[in-house]
Write a protein that binds this DNA or RNA. Structure first.
Length: 642
RNA sequence: GCCGGCGUAGCUCAAUAGGCAGAGCGUGGGAUUUGUAAUCCCAAGGUUGAGGGUUCAAGCCCCUCCGCCGGCUCCA
């Protein structure tokens, strides 16, 4: 068969042969990058070992080189095999689960009678280096089920046997390197020596195939690169991530507190964190009122029957705090705000002319999360959703969705989030409402996304049973994605609470409900923000915007005057008049990440000026206070930031 | 919830083999009056996460519980 390899030319590949049979020919052709790592055909990666089916026509292959993202995937796939081989050589009774690549590396799930320790990892890493050094060639074979079963039962690989039993006969392939055999689809490198940098990172328990009732295997995480430099850069990136950890910064900067004597997953917002939250909330309310949302407040508990009507008791109990009984009535801490907003909608008869009705609330909810999943501010048990429910007619759905998307984008932009991953989840197997209305809603979601020119992926069947939804993940400055915003169409609750409006024909119609949260929860969003800004909040958010520092005691009264003027100009200002050296005071302000320092000594006092040091080290000397005030005012509006 | 690791002063961490619980930062007091990321001295601060056990003796060994960290599962 004929194939074309970009940059290399046309070749004849004997049928059923892998690409590596062409290596001698390819080597003769001098290209700047040498032999590729693997090849791309459409969106598939094809390695050197995989035979090309005869019927493939017009085979045009694109070479993949170490700098391509796909090349890393191939490399890491092989890296996981090397890890498995090392483990099997050191611990022959270990049994292999699966060993895929992941976003930033790879892992292998392995069963062993005792946990792997740090020392084991060091040992395994040593063995890995030996295997890499041997530069073992990889090879691929396709087997029928019987042969595959024979091989893996001889190897006593029970997990592999379980997988084989579920495979199609036609797709069972194995890869070998030296003595090591693994069930694998590929793709892989040519030899183990191509892995230039590999590091094991951690071990953790993981259920076989992710199911809680299955046995727990040991998951060894690692990462690998074509170049030692890349590994070093990645490890530095990990350090940076650690430095930005909102739990650490939250403590250092006194933003919030989660204390075991208060209770797990319950957040105390410290004064500085609370000031930041206030800025966000103020902007949020202002922006919502501008867009014709109506602000409401609702209680934290209510009669439990409410949750029976809403259906939460059927599908959400395990996430709800237990009920409490008082005066023969049963109450429930709220896990969601929707039923309250529904009652507000239902407070009077609504006409088609009233719709849409947009009710919004920063509503605090309590959800009982399993103890093992709590994580700083990103996963807590009590949190405030920036919630809203829009009640609209079917013909208004799309416009409302566009409005919500517009608000989301506008709002996220304020914080510098301009890159998203958007997922549209469609009808699952179990659903309420008619397929027709689902289709309509999905179409409305799609065209709303297209209207806002937002790229999205479809998650087929991943919608909640009550309606399709859009989830939006934001990318922070370190390139990590966080799910905050969610927009969900709901056909269920209007039904359950028998919501109606009077239509043009004086008959009852059922409104559609949209649940939406822009920031998700203030707690989570704050956690993300802390990491995004590395604790150095922009001026409009900074809890302390300006600090006045004096050089000697002589300057205290001048300092006090400047402090008062800033304060009455409405800025969040504090002062450091301690008898310390100026460098000491600057250091403290710097560590607290205060945007502006005003430094006052004899010079300034005589000239009635100020010296300003910005957080980034920039110095502004001989300023008049009024000059600074003007500068600060220009930084006040969050929307002017971008 | 499950698996593994961890828990010592407000914070970061030390404490030989089971043998008198320590340092730096921070805090308080004093000295110093300083020019752009750490001046010096003194002091206070602890039921070593909680409870039980072993031992002449437990921060250290054993058991139970709680919490945190890394994952799995789940999710705003």
């Amino acid at each position: 068969m004929k194939i074309h390899i970009k940059e290399f030319g046309d070749f004849h590949l004997p049928s059923g042969q892998p690409l590596k049979t062409l290596i001698p020919e390819l080597k003769k052709i001098k290209t700047p990058k040498g032999l590729p790592v693997a090849f791309k055909f459409n969106s598939d990666i094809i390695d050197w070992h995989t035979p090309i089916p005869d019927e493939t026509k017009d085979l045009i292959l694109e070479p993949i080189y170490p700098n391509d993202k796909e090349a890393l995937e191939v490399l890491r796939h092989t890296a996981s095999h090397i890890l498995a081989q090392a483990v099997k050589e050191l611990f022959p009774e270990a049994q292999l689960g699966i060993g895929p690549t992941i976003e930033e590396g790879f892992y292998y799930d392995i069963s062993y009678p005792r946990p792997f320790t740090e020392d084991d990892l060091a040992l395994i890493e040593k063995k890995i280096q030996e295997i890499i050094k041997k530069n073992l060639p990889l090879d691929r074979k396709v087997l029928n089920r019987k042969d595959a079963e024979a091989i893996f039962s001889k190897l006593n690989e029970n997990f592999k046997l379980e997988l084989i039993r579920e495979f199609d006969d036609s797709q069972i392939s194995i890869y070998t390197q030296g003595e090591f055999i693994d069930l694998c689809r590929g793709p892989h490198l040519l030899t183990t020596g191509q892995v230039k940098a590999l590091k094991l990172l951690s071990v953790a328990g993981a259920y076989w195939r992710g199911e809680e009732r299955n046995p727990m295997l040991w998951r060894i995480y690692g990462t690998a690169f074509f170049d030692e430099k890349d590994l070093k850069a990645y490890l530095e990136h990990l350090e940076e991530v650690k430095k930005r950890d909102h739990r650490k910064l939250g403590k250092d900067l006194e933003l919030f507190l989660i204390d075991e004597d208060i209770g797990p997953g319950l957040v105390l917002w410290l004064p500085k964190g609370a000031l930041i939250r206030k800025q966000i909330e103020d902007l949020w309310r202002e922006e919502h009122l501008k867009r014709d949302y109506q602000l409401v407040f609702t209680p934290h508990i209510a009669l439990r029957d409410l949750w029976k009507t809403s259906g939460h008791l059927d599908f959400y109990v395990e996430n709800m705090y237990p009920s409490m009984e008082l005066e023969n009535r049963v109450y429930q801490l709220k896990p969601m705000n929707c039923p309250f907003h529904i009652f507000i909608y239902n407070q009077k008869r609504r006409s088609y002319r009233d719709l849409p009705i947009r009710l919004c609330e920063l509503g605090t909810v309590y959800r009982f999360e399993r103890s093992g999943v709590l994580h700083g501010l990103l996963r807590v048990r009590g949190f405030t959703q920036d919630d809203a429910h829009i009640f609209c007619r079917e013909d208004q759905l799309e416009e409302e969705l566009i409005g919500v998307l517009d608000l989301v984008i506008t709002f996220l932009k304020v914080f510098g989030f301009e890159e998203y991953q958007i997922f549209l989840s469609t009808r699952p197997e179990k659903f309420v409402g008619s397929p027709e209305i689902w289709d309509k809603a999905e179409r409305a979601l799609k065209s709303a996304l297209e209207n806002k020119e937002l790229a999205y992926q479809i998650d087929p069947g991943e919608g909640v049973f009550y309606g399709p939804k859009i989830d939006l993940k934001i990318k922070d400055t370190l390139g990590r994605f966080w799910q905050c915003s969610t927009i969900q169409v709901d056909f269920n609750l209007p039904e359950r609470f028998d919501l109606v409006y009077v239509n043009e024909e004086n008959k009852f119609s059922r409104p559609i409900m949209i649940h939406r949260a822009l920031l998700g929860s203030l707690e989570r969003f704050f956690g993300v923000l802390i990491e995004h800004y590395a604790g150095a909040f922009p001026f409009w958010l900074a809890p302390i915007q300006v600090r006045v520092l004096t050089i000697t005691d002589r300057n205290v009264s001048y300092g006090e005057k400047i402090f008062q003027e800033l304060k009455s100009a409405g800025f969040r200002v504090d002062k450091d008049f301690k008898g310390e050296k100026i460098s000491y005071k600057i250091r403290s302000a710097q560590l607290e990440k205060i945007p502006y320092m005003i430094i006052l000594g004899d010079k300034e006092e005589q000239a009635q000026t100020i010296s300003v040091r910005k957080r980034n080290g920039e110095l502004l000397q001989n300023l008049k206070l009024s000059d600074l005030l003007q500068l600060l005012k220009s930084e006040l509006s969050p929307l002017s930031l971008h």
